[in-house]
Nucleic acid binder design. Structure first.
Lengths: 211, 211
DNA sequence: GCAAAAGTGTTTTAGATACACCCATGA
DNA sequence: TCATGGGTGTATCTAAAACACTTTTGC
């Protein structure tokens, strides 16, 4: 994610079919690796992306004709990279705003939209923001990340309170000086846990309280 | 599900490896079908189960040594059958309480537990109860189903209110006479929608209200 | 009449939103 | 001293849980 929008990393296909179209990075599963190891390897080898803070399975896409030629079953993943990773990606690879994806190869467009959907729901009931944010961040920076991912303006006030009440945020004591236009220095926060945790397990039907 | 517990349909393996152990029904994917079509076909052919009210992907299990011999990648599903389906299953197939599963083949025990986890969360924020209940049911019958699936006693009062407020329940006007021990006749309800719907989309971070 | 089961009314609690206000800084 | 952005205090809203109470039946 960069510049206030949610972005997906795509690369241009160098082979038929769908030569020249944008596609999600990936490749064949080896016999000695599981699917998560495989996708991490592919991202490292093919697009030099090693700093994923979170990787999770999305779904299997298996319609027989989803790819021309011999049948290909794909396990799709959602992988998240913090907003401060250097954007150096290889030639023929680039980040694309999810709101206006280019024409993609195969079903990669709908896979991307499903990934966004998954991210959006997890932002609500987990601490998954840790995977989008740098290690240290101000609340307004975090607000921008959440707003971009969710597609609507999030209130910084409430974001801070909700995440704090849930124990997801930790204060560092450090601050950042204001810009030219002034304003109070912003405090720097961290996520308390690294690794996804469900922070709001019972949206309803909670077990009876034990008091 | 039957008799107040959550149950899984397992069949005894007739072949090595793990001959005689209980395993989840399934089989190889054909070239002309997607994974959901495939699992529905296997359930129909192998264990004569055709009345699934809901089927959804769980996850891919792909650890290289999860099955002895040549590598097998499995796409696991959660499939739900209403409580009133006749329990006629073939020889060597039977329903097992998930709380005390027998020794299973391969990783089928952990797959089953993951399925239960998925079901439990979806009971909270969707109308997925429709897939566990008969077409017509009393609130106390529904309460028993929810209680068995969730593993704790659900209040009939609050269950009715929550599902009603969310628009998931519909009244039918019909009632059921009480048993020998008396009591007020119970009203029969239906689920308003057949097909899973998210009924509580925003556990948090709802978009600003448009008023 | 009384026990049993179903269902409703009402209070309480918890987690979130909304919004007014105070704080710390640059120019 | 004033505009600006950061942060807190407090009221309000909403969904759910908790529980007292009423309804309708069998015996």
């Amino acid at each position: 994610m960069r510049s206030g929008t949610l972005q997906a990393l795509l690369w241009r296909r160098a082979l038929e079919p769908h030569l020249g179209r944008w596609s999600l990075p990936g490749g064949r599963l080896r016999h000695d690796e599981d699917v998560e190891t495989s996708i991490r390897r592919q991202l490292a080898e093919k697009v030099d992306l090693r700093k994923l803070k979170h990787v999770e399975q999305l779904a299997v896409f298996s319609t027989p004709d989803r790819v021309p030629g011999p049948r290909v079953v794909a396990t799709a993943f959602l992988g998240l990279v913090p907003s401060d990773v250097e954007p150096t990606v290889p030639e023929d690879t680039s980040w694309h705003t999810v709101e206006q994806l280019p024409r993609t190869a195969f079903d990669h467009g709908s896979i991307t939209l499903r990934a966004r959907e998954r991210l959006r729901s997890k932002l609500s009931y987990t601490n998954i923001g840790f995977a989008l944010a740098p290690d240290l961040f101000t609340i307004s920076a975090l607000r921008d990340l959440y707003s971009a991912a969710l597609g609507y303006r999030v209130s910084a006030t409430n974001l801070q309170r909700v995440l704090t009440r849930r124990g997801a945020l930790a204060t560092t004591g450090e601050t950042v000086p204001p810009g030219r236009s002034g304003g109070r220095p912003a405090a720097l926060f961290t996520f308390a846990e690294h690794g996804m945790q469900v922070t709001d397990p019972f949206a309803a039907f909670r077990p009876p309280s034990t008091r």
